[in-house]
């Protein structure tokens, strides 16, 4: 596909431990198209953030990519040298972190941080870079940007700081923004605003977004497609509407059933029994099999690959039967 921006194939990330290797990401495959917003959901520890970190090449050692490929614009980026990868970071892939209160360097003004980032990636004079910086702040909705630009981070509120962070992530005009739970640390009242800012500015700047979040509501409103992760594996991926309305993987079905809805009166919310296995104790076969209510023999022995079911891809043997039949 010509409009594929990012292509992740069979990505494996491992952490060497005292007792053998800990496999934190296991054969993750997905694509992101240009300008698309892909949501990534899953429980804590499912590997959402780790996927983002490996794409931008900022895995904390001793974690390392030990298998699979990551391609950006058709060029492999998972095996680049540190120096080459630095040119990708900020310029091709930007990143927004969770906590805006700690993401900005407290002793530099917003202007200093923005201009430094802009000039790292674009050949602009000080004056042009400053103009560009003000424009970016304008774009993310900071009022009186030209006056506030010389303020320090602590002079902004949390929501405003996250806007600054988004501006910084966009400073090098990247084609992909990885937003790692960008609203988790914020007040509920400003979360929606920040998601709007993220969505709209990225659209204006032509950047695709990989939005990592716990919040299904955010996914439903913002994303084009959604990937559901479970225990370091991809459980299901597909168009947002399809995944929410017609989930195919029992885990996704459970996930959707556990979300309260205002539209329908529901007697009881669905609860998935048990909890996600630790990474060093993932069961054989499908990682979800001990908790699955539709488990059968094959699930306990063989690991399912992603199987096309209607518009979705789901890693579940239930659908292999259907496809085979």
């Amino acid at each position: 596909m010509a409009d594929t921006l990012l292509s992740v194939k069979d990505l494996v990330v491992e952490f060497p431990q005292r007792r053998g290797l800990l496999r934190a990401l296991d054969q993750i495959s997905f694509d992101i198209k240009r300008g698309e917003i892909l949501g990534v959901v899953g429980e804590s520890g499912a590997g959402k953030s780790l996927t983002g970190a490996s794409i931008i090449g900022l895995l904390e050692p001793p974690g390392r990519v030990s298998g699979g490929t990551i391609e950006l614009d058709g060029q492999r980026i998972d095996n680049l040298s540190t120096a080459e990868m630095r040119k990708i970071r900020g310029r091709k892939i930007g990143m927004v972190f969770q906590d805006p209160l700690t993401s900005l360097n407290p002793i530099f003004t917003i202007a200093e941080q923005l201009i430094e980032t802009i000039q790292t990636h674009l050949k602009l004079s000080d004056k042009e870079a400053r103009k560009q910086a003000i424009k970016l702040l304008d774009d993310v909705g900071i009022p009186a940007a030209s006056q506030r630009i010389d303020d320090y981070p602590h002079q902004f509120s949390g929501g405003m700081r996250q806007r600054v962070v988004i501006a910084l992530a966009l400073a090098g005009e990247p084609e992909l923004i990885i937003a790692d739970e960008p609203t988790t640390a914020l007040d509920v009242s400003v979360q929606a605003q920040i998601i709007d800012v993220l969505k709209n500015t990225c659209k204006e700047h032509g950047a695709a977004v990989m939005l990592v979040t716990h919040d299904m509501g955010v996914i439903a409103e913002t994303c084009d497609r959604v990937a559901v992760m479970y225990a370091g594996r991809l459980a299901e991926i597909g168009p947002v509407r399809e995944v929410i309305k017609h989930p195919k993987h029992p885990y996704t079905i459970g996930l959707m059933g556990s979300i309260p809805s205002l539209a329908h009166q529901v007697e009881r919310l669905v609860q998935i029994p048990g909890s996600m296995p630790r990474l060093d104790a993932i069961p054989e076969g499908c990682a979800f099999n001990p908790r699955c209510n539709r488990v059968f023999d094959r699930c306990r022995t063989e690991r399912p690959d992603l199987i096309a079911v209607e518009e979705n891809l789901a890693a579940c043997w239930l659908h292999a039967k259907e496809a085979g039949a």
Binding site: R86, R89, G94, F97, L104, T117, T120, H121, A171, G172
Partner: peptide, 9 residues
């Protein structure tokens, strides 16, 4: 970390 993610030298 954020400075690294922005590709600063």
């Amino acid at each position: 970390k954020f400075a690294r993610a922005r590709g600063l030298s």
